[in-house]
């Protein structure tokens, strides 16, 4: 019971998010209309992805400090699930874009940033697959992970704020927090971020356990 409380919390929060997200009352906005509900799913997925990427980098640093191969496994699996969340966020965003901006893939700095981010993490896996030796692979990919994260952050957080963007909070567009979301929405939105992040950690922990079993079997 000691270790399962956060899984229960995760399920409860996500159920709450889905019920509130599909059935709750949302403010009516001119272009957004009912699609504003997507803010409960699309945005928390991105927050979850960022959290997972940060965790991945954290374990990469930890690996470099003590050379424990388990930390490398953590790092990989966090990156893996981060990519998965990234793709989901991309899909929900694309769906949303079609109904508000009239285009599945508008030219927008944030979308480009995320495409680049997915490219970075894909090349991380290419790098991993090109080494035979376990320790060597772990060390080099940890180095690349930290290096890539450090260049990815300015890309996502700084660049979109300088150029014109369709996303709220960028290029002079007001942020969601200011106008669109009322307090009732925020009561769902903030828990949703926690819920999706917990879900990511849960998936990651399952994958790590699978990996450990496979390693011990060999």
């Amino acid at each position: 019971m000691k270790k399962t409380w956060w899984k229960i919390l995760c399920v409860v929060i996500l159920l709450y998010t889905i019920i509130q997200g599909l059935g709750g009352i949302v403010p009516r906005q001119p272009i957004l209309n009912e699609t504003i509900r997507n803010v409960y799913f699309h945005v928390p997925l991105w927050f979850g992805m960022m959290a997972l990427m940060t965790a991945s980098m954290w374990f990469a640093i930890k690996y470099l400090r003590n050379g424990n191969i388990a930390d490398d496994e953590y790092s990989v699996e966090f990156a893996n699930v981060a990519i998965f969340f990234g793709i989901l966020g991309f899909m929900t965003g694309s769906l949303w874009g079609q109904f508000t901006w009239g285009d599945w893939l508008p030219k927008d700095p944030k979308i480009i940033a995320v495409e680049v981010g997915l490219l970075i993490y894909s090349s991380y896996f290419i790098l991993r697959s090109s080494f035979e030796d376990e320790q060597r692979r772990a060390r080099l990919s940890a180095i690349y992970n930290i290096f890539a994260f450090a260049t990815f952050i300015p890309l996502v957080w700084i660049l979109p704020r300088l150029t014109d963007s369709l996303h709220p909070g960028n290029g002079g567009n007001p942020a969601f927090g200011k106008y669109d979301m009322d307090s009732a929405m925020r009561m769902v939105f903030y828990p949703a971020i926690i819920g999706f992040t917990l879900l990511g950690v849960w998936i990651t922990s399952l994958r790590i356990r699978l990996r450990v079993i496979e390693r011990l079997k060999l």
Partner: peptide
Amino acid sequence: TLMAVLSFPIILPM
């Protein structure tokens, strides 16, 4: 190959 694959995405913002 790796050089191109690894460097292009992280050089793009720059």
